[in-house]
Amino acid sequence: MYQPRPGDLLASLDTPAMIVDGQLMEENIARLMARFRETPVRVRPHLKTAKSPELAHRLLAAGVIGCCVAKVSEAEVMALAGIEDLLITSEIVGPPKVTRLVNLLRRHPRIKVVVDSQVGIQVLSAALEVADLHLNVLIELNVGQNRCGVAPGEDALALAQYIASMSHLHLIGVQGYEGHLQHIHDLQERTRRCREAMHLLTTTAAQLRTAGFPIEIVTTGGTGTAEICAQWEGVTEVQPGSFLFMDTDYRNALGPVYANALTILSTVISLPSPNRAIVDAGLKSLSIDSGMPEPLGLPGVQYQPAGDEHGVLFWDKQTNAARLQLAIGDRIAFYPSHIDTTINLHDTYYVCRNGVLEAIWPVTARGKVQ
């Protein structure tokens, strides 16, 4: 059975395959770090996108201060690979998760979590007391996304006071993620609404400090808003993740700020009609929650899934010349519309440079959703 190796030609890979352009990815990292180099704001990239310890180590080498993960299971993967400064950005609720967190903390005490309820705080505190462990926590604030998070202001202050009554929990910061603003196309509108969210976040942080709480971390921001957040006094770190590879949803909102460095490579397996081609990449290879992926080099050609394993390329009569350029066996690459959910469909990154396979990285945290 063929096993790809570094040094093989890209053309030798079977499809569907997830391809990383090594040079473009490195340029994206360098570009992001340069944007924050002259600011006091630090970068804590979110690994829910990359799901790879290899990429986490590369980001740390580039100068990030630590990393975010979404779930305890992702933290387990990253901590095992030696990434110690981790913030888990989703609330940890339920005995299985709490037990896993406690077991993780025994070996990796620098892990931090977010909280937004007295119930969650009490359960964490009880488990930590039994284990004789201590945990640093951040209050998650609702800054407009209306997902998790306590209301800014008095509600956050009340929660901080409750945390203070727990001897094994230590409040060190606040998190406020404006995820609902990441893909707003109009820069002025995105900036205005992001500043409103930052006002809620930093004002609450200041209120907590005035009340005597040692708020060291004010963390926020994604790929679409990180630079706006960094301009707001009081923000200490940002959490971009998709900048590594990008997708069409972010590109359409931000423009060419970062390069699309990841594609899904497919093969044309059938040409059943003059304006339709079938590729071997369907719903198990390309996510469509943010729209359809974009075929490269085929203007006017559109994609839609045709089941788990198949995708359809189609075009109208005015684009019929594209039909003449396609043949069974041709390779078609796609830009994903949503990078996070597409990466989670694949086991392997194939890192290429100039048409040659340079490295093979497992998507180690794929499927780690607990």
Score class of each variant (00 low, 15 high):
L10R: 07
S12Y: 07
S12M: 10
T15M: 07
P16A: 13
A17W: 06
M25R: 01
M25S: 01
E26I: 13
N28L: 10
A30K: 10
A30E: 13
F36R: 03
R42C: 02
V43Y: 07
L47D: 10
K48R: 02
P53N: 10
E54I: 13
A61R: 15
V64N: 04
G66V: 09
C67L: 07
C68G: 05
A79F: 08
I83M: 01
I88M: 01
T89F: 04
I92V: 13
L101T: 00
L104F: 04
I111D: 05
V130K: 15
N136H: 08
V143N: 06
V143G: 04
A158P: 12
S167A: 12
L169T: 00
V174A: 02
Q175L: 15
Q175T: 10
G176P: 02
E178H: 02
G179S: 01
L181V: 05
L181A: 01
D186F: 12
L187D: 14
E189D: 08
R195T: 13
R195P: 06
A197T: 03
H199L: 13
L201A: 02
A205C: 03
A206T: 14
I215F: 06
I215S: 04
G221A: 00
A230M: 07
T236K: 00
E237M: 03
Q239N: 10
P240C: 02
G241W: 04
F245N: 14
A253F: 07
G255H: 08
A259W: 10
T263V: 08
V268H: 01
N275A: 14
R276H: 14
R276Q: 15
A277G: 08
V279T: 07
V279R: 00
L286N: 03
L298S: 03
V301P: 02
Q304L: 14
H310R: 15
W315I: 01
Q318K: 12
L326Q: 08
L326M: 10
A327T: 09
S337G: 01
T341W: 08
T341F: 11
Y349W: 14
Y350Q: 06
C352Q: 09
R353M: 06
G355C: 06
T364Y: 09
